[in-house]
Amino acid sequence: MTAVKTKEYVLPPVCIREVLRYSGCAEVTPDMEALANECAAEARKIFSPKICYGEFPVKMIGDDLDLGFARVSSRDLEKNLEGCDSAVVFCATVGHEIDRLIKKYGVISPAKAVIFQGLGAERIEALCDLFCADLESEGLTARPRFSPGYGDLPLELQRDIFRTLDCPRRIGATLNQSLLISPTKSVSAVVGLKKRV
């Protein structure tokens, strides 16, 4: 039987260039860099990066993909998982506080709200990168993570992921009626594991 696990992480330092890229700045200007640094300093202690995940066998059953915890029909995911015997399904979040900050600055400084938005995006992506890199080993490579809603992978898969991983209880991530995750800075995805040849 597959066990679901929970992990907490320490994130690497903030990459200001990425924050600005997510905030709509194609280049790093001194004024924007200063603003992003100010925001990053203010948000230094607010992130609580957590992940819950489980590994499941993957196989094709007719035209459907059996992910071990759910069956889906998705050509795009099928292609992504080609050659994988198993996949890790995970949900990651950096917590609620960044959402509160974005909302607060939405009222008093919209420019900062956009930067905090970018900062949150950078943090959650950094968390996912860290986690996915951890999945790799001498014998295994991890395929690029693939989320519900990408390509033809139905968003409805979110329900199966959340039920299987028990995300609300494990990491405090919840699904809203549009199948989006709260906190907003969260990601759920499937990562195929492939033997190295």
Binding site: L20, S23, G24, C25, A26, T29, D31, M32, L35, P110, A111, K112, A113, V114, I115
Partner: peptide, 9 residues
């Protein structure tokens, strides 16, 4: 860029 536009706004 967007944050700059917003600072002016």
């Amino acid at each position: 860029y967007l944050p700059q536009l917003l600072m002016s706004a």
